[in-house]
């Protein structure tokens, strides 16, 4: 296939957690793909499986959770001999054993992750320098001195002033924004081809959020990496992403280009979500239109389409019975809803 090169394809991913109380189907059919250098946003309310999807890609799911079905095809670029074109190899990450040598080689080096809470994701008893250097010492053949130099360089790159001295500070000595910058530096140390950022700005103020988003965009341009941005903030998605996957109860219910999604949302959940948020600069005094009810308990997933109890366009006898098929539209968008099944 010509044109932009694929980096990641997720097909029919299912990740379940087997608990005493029952099986939690955290991810129940996630399908999306991502181009090299592209930006994908995954949005949805809490508990809809955004984070579990990300953890599945990096094989960070812990027992009793397990990927039970599906493929995660990662197109890995192998460094060819200089001059010759780089060859790609396709790895199915879902088949790799968690903790196996092959996933450890990829994770941290080719796929890196920025976690949600900069307060808890960093170790409080190690200096940030040590924590960042660990990544590169693990994945690359470098001496400690070189690692330290590269770390200083990277910290400067992500906008931490006085990086030579900041290297030896502990996370508690840094503010939230600085800590998130350190997290990003750590993720970027090995120049990954895919960065997964799980709610990277949720814990930050709007002004700091703007700084971090700007930084991520700039670094993405420079390094040509692809980004998966997980967030519940539709504003952030509209601002930085090229494609969006909307998740509800473990399913990707809609996957589309960002302009198309915001201009013409197809799935009733996407439509309801967009209606329910107060938008800055739009006339007030109208009431918000909330989605009725709430995200159901994960132990009792509704049958049929998981959204049907809250859906305004529910077709009785159909939506509560059959699982809607994945409909691929001519423009490449996919949507999982019976409303579009017949066209």
């Amino acid at each position: 296939m010509e044109g932009p090169e694929l980096l990641l394809e997720v097909k029919g991913l299912k990740t379940y957690f087997f608990l005493d109380e029952g099986t939690v189907k955290a991810v129940e059919g996630a399908d999306f793909s991502l181009l090299r250098g592209g930006t994908l946003g995954i949005v949805g309310e809490s508990g809809c499986g955004k984070t579990v999807t990300a953890y599945s890609i990096t094989q960070l799911i812990e027992s009793p959770g397990r990927i039970v079905e599906g493929q995660i095809l990662f197109h890995r670029r192998l460094n060819g001999v200089e001059g010759s074109p780089a060859t790609t190899e396709v790895v199915d990450l879902a088949k790799l054993r968690p903790g196996s040598r092959s996933i450890c080689e990829i994770r941290g080096s080719e796929i890196a992750m920025v976690f949600q809470e900069p307060m808890t994701a960093l170790s409080p008893v190690h200096t940030i320098g040590d924590q960042i250097m660990e990544v590169i010492l693990l994945h690359r053949k470098v001496s400690k001195k070189e690692a330290r130099e590269q770390t200083v360089e990277m910290l400067r790159h992500v906008g931490i002033p006085k990086s030579e001295t900041r290297l030896d500070t502990y996370p508690f000595q840094l503010s939230g924004g600085m800590r998130q910058r350190a997290m990003i530096a750590m993720a970027l140390m090995c120049r990954p081809s895919l960065l997964i950022a799980d709610e990277p700005t949720t814990a930050l103020d709007v002004t700091m959020q703007a700084q971090i988003l700007e930084l991520m965009k700039q670094l993405q341009r420079e390094m040509g990496m692809a980004v998966i941005l997980i967030t519940h903030n539709l504003g952030v998605v509209a601002e930085v992403c090229e494609q969006v996957a909307v998740m509800y109860l473990g399913e990707v219910v809609e996957w589309a280009d960002v302009e198309a999604l915001f201009a013409d949302p197809l799935h009733p959940y996407t439509q309801a979500l967009l209606r329910s948020i107060p938008k800055l600069g739009q006339s007030k005094k109208g009431r918000l239109d909330p989605i009725k009810g709430m995200v159901p308990d994960p132990y009792n997933r509704p049958g049929g389409c998981p959204f049907h109890p809250r859906c305004a366009q529910m077709i009785a006898g159909r939506c509560d019975q059959e699982r809607p098929p994945l409909v691929r539209r001519p423009d490449g968008r996919t949507v999982r809803c019976v409303l579009y099944a017949d066209s």
Binding site: V206, Q209, N233, G235, A238, E239, E259, I277, K279, L280
Partner: peptide, 10 residues
């Protein structure tokens, strides 16, 4: 600084 939920308003 507030992200606007409209990609045309980037």
């Amino acid at each position: 600084a507030v992200p606007k939920p409209d990609p045309r308003m980037r």
